[in-house]
Amino acid sequence: MPNFLRAPSGTQIALVKATVFLACLVPAAQLALGWQNDTLGANPIETITRASGEWTLRLLLITLAVSPLRRYTGLHWLIRLRRMLGLFAFAYAAAHFTTYVWLDQFFDWQAIARDILDRPFITVGFAAFVLLIPLAATSSNAAIRRLGGRRWQSLHRSTYAIAILAVVHFWWLVKADLLKPFIYVLILAALLGLRAWWREQERRRQLSVPPPAKHLERPVIRIVQK
């Protein structure tokens, strides 16, 4: 493996970050341009709703893929992209929610409230979005320090629940062709399955560590003759 891949310099990491940042903006830019030029098809609001929703889902799964990738490739610096990817997932979720509230329902709060209460696919989608808010709000270094690593980490484990809700949201809205949501289910199952597998391995490793040898159990006091 070339050295810059294994241990990139600060500049190289900054460059990678900038590239990923721009790449994450591409779908949004395409939608904005398409809206401007009226090239989003016969039902542009549906196109925007679908695209922002799917990009949220993809970015959530990409964020969840960072740890396994890092572990199996040894590219430890990948972790430094994770926050940005997670925040982009939140940004697309916010765009998705805004599209629904503004373009689709046009601030008909009564209809929106009824949707959230009566329509399970909207309930779970809304729940996923609400759960994302505290994660986005505690993404800064200052927030991590304030919360403390352990508490921050347990809060951010809700990502798993959010990803499950997001996939269910997609599954439940589809009319008949479940192929696409099924692919997301498979990917999510693999990503969550890996983590379960790691935990299990860790548990076994701890069980199989031989007990400390007898002579190390008590402090040995040796009287040395001077």
Binding site: A42, N43, I45, L103, Q105, F106, A111, D115
Partner: peptide, 19 residues
């Protein structure tokens, strides 16, 4: 009568923004 998963009270006429 709603579809179990969405309301049928309004519709978007293709080419229009507001329902």
């Amino acid at each position: 009568v709603s579809h179990p998963r969405w309301s049928q009270a309004t519709e978007r006429r293709i080419g229009e923004i507001r329902k």
